[in-house]
Write a protein that binds this DNA or RNA. Structure first.
Length: 115
DNA sequence: TTCGTGACGCAGT
DNA sequence: AACTGCGCCACGA
């Protein structure tokens, strides 16, 4: 039972939508939670192509080292950092403080996702 | 079908 | 901390 890319994207979007304000998750983590291990790059692609109207908190998705994935000083970097600061996420230089790393309760998460 | 691409991850230097 | 190289792998041209 293979899924279409749209179905995969939908699952990715569902997970991203569950990241709480003030918290962050890595691309790989989102992939895992969406049932797509080793597909961090697919997550990045899904976010890049995400319809604006979904209003996804894309800024809460970062690289595994707790850093913004875009090159510092790039427009996207600035935008993402502003969005995170606006919801009280704290940085130590370019690194986000570990206390903001989302660690969802898996039981609750499973109930929130459609299955 | 082959091949280049990428909003990644990780280990090594 | 910063860089680099290599692994990864679905997608689409």
């Amino acid at each position: 039972m293979s899924q279409t890319t749209q179905q995969k994207f939908q699952r990715i979007y569902q997970v991203v939508a569950l990241i709480p304000s003030g918290q962050v998750a890595s691309y790989g983590q989102v992939a895992d939670l969406a049932g797509l291990p080793r597909h961090a790059r697919l997550v990045s692609k899904a976010l890049k192509l995400a319809p604006e109207r979904l209003n996804l908190p894309w800024h809460r998705v970062i690289a595994s080292q707790l850093k913004i994935a875009f090159p510092a000083s790039s427009p996207m970097y600035i935008e993402q950092k502003q969005a995170l600061l606006a919801e009280q996420v704290e940085f130590n230089g370019s690194k986000i403080q570990a206390k903001h790393h989302w660690q969802p309760d898996l039981f609750t998460l499973l109930q929130q996702l459609d299955y």
